[in-house]
Design a protein around this nucleic acid. Sequence first.
DNA 1: TCTTTGTTTGACCAACTGGTCAAATCAACG
DNA 2: CGTTGATTTGACCAGTTGGTCAAACAAAGA
Lengths: 200, 200
Amino acid sequence: MTKPPTRIQKRNRAAILTAGLDVFSQYGFRGSTLDQIAVAAGLSKPNLLYYFPSKDAIYTALLERLLETWLAPLQQMNADGDPVTEILDYTHRKLEMSRDYPRESRLFANEIVQGAPHIADHLSGELRVLVDEKAAVIQGWAKAGKIADVDAHHLIFSIWALTQHYADFDVQVRAVLNTDDPFARAGPFLDHAVRSILRR
Amino acid sequence: MTKPPTRIQKRNRAAILTAGLDVFSQYGFRGSTLDQIAVAAGLSKPNLLYYFPSKDAIYTALLERLLETWLAPLQQMNADGDPVTEILDYTHRKLEMSRDYPRESRLFANEIVQGAPHIADHLSGELRVLVDEKAAVIQGWAKAGKIADVDAHHLIFSIWALTQHYADFDVQVRAVLNTDDPFARAGPFLDHAVRSILRR
DNA sequence: TCTTTGTTTGACCAACTGGTCAAATCAACG
DNA sequence: CGTTGATTTGACCAGTTGGTCAAACAAAGA
């Protein structure tokens, strides 16, 4: 039987995960060091390793905890709702996540661009199952003529691409736009874009 | 006066850049080692540093050489052509680059996700100038009623996002689709998507 | 051929890396 | 208070890192 975490354990584990998110999302797994994370968490390196057995453990703990958060918006998509509304709402939720959780987005981006060595199983497992399920729903809407006859999988990819771009390529977007709030115009644009794609 | 490169210099410099592209695009700058690159190039590590003064020099040489290739498709967009055709052709060229040069795409993705520390100047310089120029052209088309009244900058971003997604997130796309050629269906889908967005 | 210039390498270095460990310190509870 | 278990740390380690350097080796022209 495992003992319940103490007050200090809760606080420090949380601090480490927050620090890990900061560092890993900026430098990727191999580019990040335990020292960086320790400093960001306000702990010594050996103390870090008292709470997590290894660098890898911090990283995978982060990734797996985030995977739920990441899949939630798609899970909310309701087969019984109005097709266009459901897909647009999903798009908005994803864009909100890019705005409110850019570090999480970049953590995944880093991981996947580099070949997803730590979460390959999750991609062809949980993720694939969920996407297939929702793609079937969308395909149903398309066959019923409620939206344009688009490839549902690629529609989902396109929503990912369009929304996550604003978090993952934030530096580029800001460099080109010279705006302090790129999301202001992104929202209406994406609304128009997705609406257009779905229009029969 | 600088001397012209010898035959051996040409061969080895090219080998190093190819090897660097392989390694850097997979692991990012900090995640890559000179040993990895040396092995991939078929040279010893000191020999590598005979041709390039540092790891950083190899990386930035790669990035700057690639920047031209990367901007070329957008430069080709012709203000005097048919708006829809020009934008669709641009989309196709970008998707082709994702298919034919995925390592280059991932190299940039890695760099930009991690905050573009090596090419920040290029982003707010050359890139921004080019994008502003082409955005003005697109804005002109929109004002003239030749395409839908979309935000030109975000239209360009969306084309980047949609096309580069297939190179940068290749692992994820393949894991979900279970296809050996994700680009087969991506082409028609993107055609429909961009065409829809532009439709008045 | 000899010489000059270009090329390659083994040995080496200091800094940094993830990780260990015993000892010191602290918190909580009876 | 005293004791027990949780927490923290300094010192340390072996492996890796980017980079140096002198010496060995090849190429090419005179």
